[in-house]
Every structure is written in C-alpha cells, then in structure tokens.
Design a protein around this nucleic acid. Structure first.
Ligand code: MN
Ligand code: MN
Ligand code: MN
Ligand code: MN
Lengths: 218, 218
DNA sequence: TTTTAATTTTAGTCTCATCTAAATTTTATA
DNA sequence: TATAAAATTTAGATGAGACTAAAATTAAAA
C-alpha cells in the first residue's frame, strides 16, 4: 500500500515523462510539485527501494513498468472523480481539480470500478484528457490544437493545453465546452487568429487561445 | 485545518460521549480506536491546545462546543458518503463503512453541500443513523429496539445497534432492510423471541436479533 | 582547460503520529 | 488505611515527509 506522498510523486513523474522527456531531473520534479530538491532526492530513494522508479544519483529518474502502472491508476482515479464532480454534482470544469486531488487517494478497487460504471465508462475527463483503463493503459487520443486545423474542417473540443483558471473561465463565458462542435471558417494571416462557428455563434479567436485548445477532427 | 488523525479522534470521542458517558477516559478512547493509551494522552493535549476538547490529566476528556461541531460535521460527511455508496453505486450496506472512513476526510464544504443535494438531503444513513445538518446539529430519532415494541404495532426498520458484519448479512438474507415495515404479531415469553410479519413474510426473530434492531414506530 | 555556475545530494533538524517501557496517580481491596 | 491493581502520563524512540544549510557533482563559460 502506497502513501499519499508516494502516489503524488509517481503521478508527477508520469506527467513530466510524457510532457517533457524520458528521464526526469530532481529539480524538475521539485519545481512541478512545489517542494525542495532535497525532499525529492529523499523520496526518489524510497521509490527506488520499492522498485517504482529507476534512480541513479545525479542522473535523474524514470518510472519502472510497475511505477508507470501505479501512476496511471492514480490518474485514472483522479479523472474519473473529475467526471463525477462535473457530470453528477454540476461543478464547473475549472473547479474540480483540487477536490479530485484528494479523492484520487481513496483506496478501493471496487469503488473505482463501480464509479466507472456509474459514469458510463467515460473515456475523457472534463478537460479532455484521456482516462486510463483499470490496467493503467491509456488510449492516446489523436488530438490537435485548434490552431493546426485546416479551414472548413469541423472539430470537436476535447480539452485545453494549459488549464489556467482564466482561460477555462473565458471558454465558459463564450460558451465553448468539452464536446462543443467547432467549424473553422477562416484564418487571418497577419495575427494568426481563427474565425470559427459553434452553436450558431460566430467569433474570432486569438492565436493564443487557438493554440491552447485541443480538438479532435470529425 | 485539522489533520485526519485529529478528525478521527474527535469523531471517536463524540461516539463515546453519546453512547457511554459525558466524560470519556483515555483507555476508552484507546480501546475504541485500537491504539495505545499513551498515544491518546498525546493527542488529547494537542486537541486541548486547539480548544477542541477539555482535558485534565487523569480526569478524562470531553468535547468543547467547537469540538462537538467539528465531530458532527465529520460524521455528516461519513454518513452522506455511505448513502452515496449504497444509493448510487449499489454497494451493500455492510460494505460501505471502510470506504466512507476515507471519504469523510476529503476537505470541501462545497463538495458535501452538492453531494447532499444530489442525494436529496437524506436524513438517515444506510444503517439508520441520523445525518447531522451542515451546522452539525443532529435531529434525534425517537428510535426503539424491536424487542421493546408492543404486540400488534407496526414499525419501520431504521437501523442496527451493533453493526457486526454477520448480523447485517443475516438481515440481508432474510430480507430486512432500512425502510422495511415490520408488524409485531406475538412474543414468546420463554425465550423472548418475537414473531413478526414483513413483506408478506412471517418469521420468528431471536431475542438477540430483536435487541439489535432499531425501529421507529409508525 | 580552468573557473564559475547550476544542479544534486548529504547532514542535521522539525512536526506529526505512533510505539514501548517506566513512572505516576487514582481506584479498589484487604 | 496501607497495599495492590488499574489507569494514566511521561520519557524516549521511530518513521514519514518536509525543511535549511553545506558539501559534492556536473554543466557551462571564460
Ligand atoms: Mn485534474
Ligand atoms: Mn494527489
Ligand atoms: Mn459507517
Ligand atoms: Mn475516519
């Protein structure tokens, strides 16, 4: 049985491995988790002892197969709870992360299994991120940024790149959610903004916004 | 913000105060929580420091108004989650306690408020125990033991006294649940068993069973 | 290729929550 | 009421998980 801290470290290493590179540095982990490098070193030794990571002094760390599986299952729990909070308790998608951060550590296989069924086996969370299956396998979504989509294509909004609160609230305000169908009408070359249509509304989106919105082309 | 251990101690003291007496002894807490008396003494000092309990060396401990309120709110969370697990995730009532023991420590006012709404503001948990309101007030149920009910009265099953797994499973097997209407047909004086009717079934219940089943007279 | 800077680890300390063993206080008993 | 037993507290230790400050290692710059 892993502690809450161990689960959080594994999860963070998992994210850093997929988003940055295969071997993760002590400082990268410390910065990501808002803790001190010396605390990270300490934990890396404990995780290595339990064969959850491969660690060499001064050389960085990476997850073992076991560590990867454990991390993915924590992420599965996190994302399933996020779906619950949004779908069943009517939270906004920008309000659920902190609560899921706590719920993800509740230990019960059966609970997560039943929760999954209760939610109709969702494949993505409210931010469009894929939910690993019970074995810890993640089906990679072939997602693109809105800024990369060609004119006249229709796409479905599946998530955001950086989930800053202001951006999530901006999307809420203009009415874009997970699942919203968006058609790209035109692109401006001088500022790289895109002109889009969704829910019968038409508007222009800045380059910054369109580079932060993940979509799946229909 | 209280730690998990602090919340668990407060909850235990609350239960011991209501079920036994006003002032709770160190050993009683230790036994109830399956820990050592010296650990209890330690924690009592910390809780007294935070004005959650009134503690005098060698004299036992009792909750302050603040401590009582905090404890009741932990119990509220525990019981609301138990309702969720049974009503929404289809757990049996004898399977939910351990999981609720973890969920009760998730910190979010908003979460519990929304959960309460989602569950239609239940007043009792799956074991028939009352759910404190958001302010920590418990509406006392005027509950009796089945063994205390007069002949020919009809009562509704609202819970059990000792929630031993075997007893809960026994009730499941014969078909008695929270909410089951039970009519007392007769009582045997030689063994204090009761003859009852429920859901068109008739059967005899031992003294031991009838002294462990809480009902509300209709 | 030295020298400097950045990264990482080590050493030592802290708090929380637990334990064991020993000392103290209270309660029960002779 | 003196003494034994039970209950409770104190003293000291441990482990997890965090921190600071200092030392060691690696990477970058001169
Ligand atoms: Mn999240
Ligand atoms: Mn977490
Ligand atoms: Mn319970
Ligand atoms: Mn608990």
């Amino acid at each position: 049985m892993l502690t809450r801290a161990e689960e959080n470290y594994l999860k963070s290493i998992f994210h850093l491995e997929t988003e940055l590179e295969d071997v993760v540095s002590t400082n990268a982990i410390a910065e990501f988790m808002e803790t001190k490098p010396s605390s990270v070193t300490d934990m890396m030794r404990r995780l290595a002892e339990k064969e959850l990571v491969t660690y060499q002094r001064y050389k960085g760390v990476y997850l073992t197969d076991l560590g990867e599986k454990v991390a993915a299952r924590v992420i599965r729990r996190h994302r399933l709870w996020e779906v619950f909070l949004v779908e069943k308790l009517n939270f906004q998608w920008d309000e659920v992360h902190e609560i899921a951060e706590q719920l993800e550590h509740v230990q019960s296989e059966e609970l997560i299994c039943r929760l999954d069924t209760f939610l109709n086996n969702p494949e993505i969370d409210p931010h469009g991120d894929p939910i690993p299956n019970a074995e810890g396998k993640i089906k990679p979504l072939e997602k693109k940024l809105l800024s990369e989509v060609d004119i006249n294509k229709t796409a479905i909004c599946i998530g955001v790149k950086e989930s800053a609160t202001e951006f999530l609230q901006f999307l809420d305000r203009i009415g874009i959610q997970i699942g919203t169908k968006i058609k790209i009408l035109s692109k401006e070359t001088f500022d790289n903004s895109v002109f889009i249509e969704f829910n019968t509304k038409r508007m222009s989106l800045s380059q910054k916004a369109s580079e932060n919105l993940f979509i799946k082309i229909l």
